[in-house]
Each structure stands twice: as C-alpha cells, then as structure tokens.
Nucleic acid binder design. Sequence first.
DNA 1: CGAGTAATGTTATAAAGTAAACGCTGAAAA
DNA 2: TTTTCAGCGTTTACTTTATAACATTACTCG
Lengths: 144, 144
Amino acid sequence: MNAEELLSQAKESCKKRGARFTLAREQVFKLLTRHSGAVGAYDLLDELKLIDPAAKPATIYRALDFLNKQGFVHKIESLNSFVMCHHFSECNHPVQLLICDTCGHVEEIQSSNLDLALRSMADATGFTISHQIVEAHGACQTCS
Amino acid sequence: MNAEELLSQAKESCKKRGARFTLAREQVFKLLTRHSGAVGAYDLLDELKLIDPAAKPATIYRALDFLNKQGFVHKIESLNSFVMCHHFSECNHPVQLLICDTCGHVEEIQSSNLDLALRSMADATGFTISHQIVEAHGACQTCS
DNA sequence: CGAGTAATGTTATAAAGTAAACGCTGAAAA
DNA sequence: TTTTCAGCGTTTACTTTATAACATTACTCG
Ligand SMILES: [Zn+2]
Ligand SMILES: [Zn+2]
Ligand SMILES: [Zn+2]
Ligand SMILES: [Zn+2]
C-alpha cells in the first residue's frame, strides 16, 4: 500500500463519515506516510514547521488525535510515538505491533489467536476490554 | 500475597542475586505495595517526601528502575505509571495487565496462549521478541 | 586499610503532553 | 443574502514525565 493509495483511502473514509480532512490533518498524514517506523510528535512537529513555520505542539497533537480517532494512525505507548496504519479500512481492528529496536521498523500484525486469547482470559475474570495495547520489542528479520 | 510476604520475598531474591535492597529502594517498594493499581512516579514521590523530604525525581526513578529490573514492579506504558508485581518469583514472566479505567485496579494475568500466539506470529515473520507489552483497558467485574 | 565500584545527592534541563482563551471560517438556517 | 454558530485553528502558558551530568558518600573485597 503506497502513500497515494493510503491518502485517497483516508479521504474517502472521511467523506463517508462526514469528517473533515483539513489541510493541517492532511499535512500530518502525509508526513507520517513517509516513515516506516515510529515518529515522535515533536519530530513530526519539526518536519511540519518546514512547510508551516507557525506550527505549535497543539497543532500536531490535535491532528494526531484526529487521525488516531479515525484509525489512520496508531499510538505506540512504549515509545511515546506514532505510526501510520496500513489496514485502516478494517475498522477498529486490534493493534498488534512488532517494533524493531535496531532499525526502528514497525510491523503491524493481525493475529486473531492473540486477540482471542486475551479476550477469553479477560472474560474468565469478568473483565470487559475496551481497548488493548500489544507491543513487542526486539529485532526484525534483517536485523537479527 | 500480602505486603510483608512480598517484602521478605523481595529481600530474599536480592540476597540470592547479590543485589542491594537499600533503604530508598525498600521505602519505594513499601509504598508500591500499598496500592492495588497504577501509581505515577510523581505521586509516589509525594508519598516518599513525607518520610524523606529530600527526595527528588531522580530518587524515585532510580528506585523504580532497580525494582523494575529485579522484576518486582512493572511499568504500565499506557499510563506512564507503575504497579507492584505479585508473581515476581516466576522470573521474567511476560507481563499481561487488565487495567480498569473506572476504579483503577490492575489485574495481572498469565495466559500462555496469549504469549504463544504472539511468539508464533513473531516467528512467522522472522522477528525475535526481547520484551513484550500487553495492556488491556476496560472495566473490571465490579465496575461493569 | 585502601582502591574500586555501586548508590545517592543535587541541580538543571529535556521531552511529552495539555489547558484555556480567543479568533477565524464556512456551511446551514432564516 | 445575511446571520449565526459549531468546529477548527492559533497562541500562550503550563503541567507532567523523565533524564543528564557531576559531585559525594557508602559499601565490598583484596
Ligand atoms: Zn492498524
Ligand atoms: Zn530491524
Ligand atoms: Zn508480574
Ligand atoms: Zn473497576
């Protein structure tokens, strides 16, 4: 899935939902598609400042908040950073990430077994899951 | 597992490994055992200041770092906070947490299915896991 | 004891994230 | 067409979380 495809898919998705894909949001979206790994909000801000020198932390955080709510972007809690989702057409999918600590690449996986195992364990203790965080750190194939 | 049992177990464990369970570390350990849920480093610092007014951020972070490395305490990445582990005798176990967003209680679960599902998915893509983060947010039984 | 290492104290600062007040704008209602 | 108003963006200031750097003290072991 390349950058343009993702962008048009995002626009389409917003149109359907009546959400506004404004310039600021599109700019941040595009910046994110240029990274294959995690990007910090302030790194992103530095990049955004090159095309919009007036950008401030709130600019980035608001855009990221929107993109995250639309499911276009995932937050990586263990790195305080963000990564583009390449499967956002599959709404509300559980997020499962393999994060290479060597090269920084982030791979999003989809294991229903994993999701099931977590849900069944939660069920067993009467816990209702609203949001799950699964992040594995280590070394990717090329870095091993 | 009550507070005293945990404490003596921790002391024992340090003795075996030749790690120093110093006063500062013990104080922070004790403060943590008094919480059933997540505690922020600065909240903990406020509590510590009551018995050691000279305590500074570094004091807490160093103690937490030690306790975390010994496996006595887990960091909750999605809350930037910390929780006592009640199973630290089982060394290096994968950490899987159910976090109630209503009452703040944190339940540590042990699902080998979950661990297996993650590992097998990682294997399939040639990824070697060194550390995993599994945190589910939602509502516990009493809060549902 | 004395050298070497581990831990702590202290100060300062970096990094990440949020709040609140206010102005702009563009599309729906009148 | 004009009004109006909710959503978006800007700006300023601030809070929370975490670490760096370096001096000092405490413990361990030969
Ligand atoms: Zn995704
Ligand atoms: Zn890699
Ligand atoms: Zn544990
Ligand atoms: Zn609860």
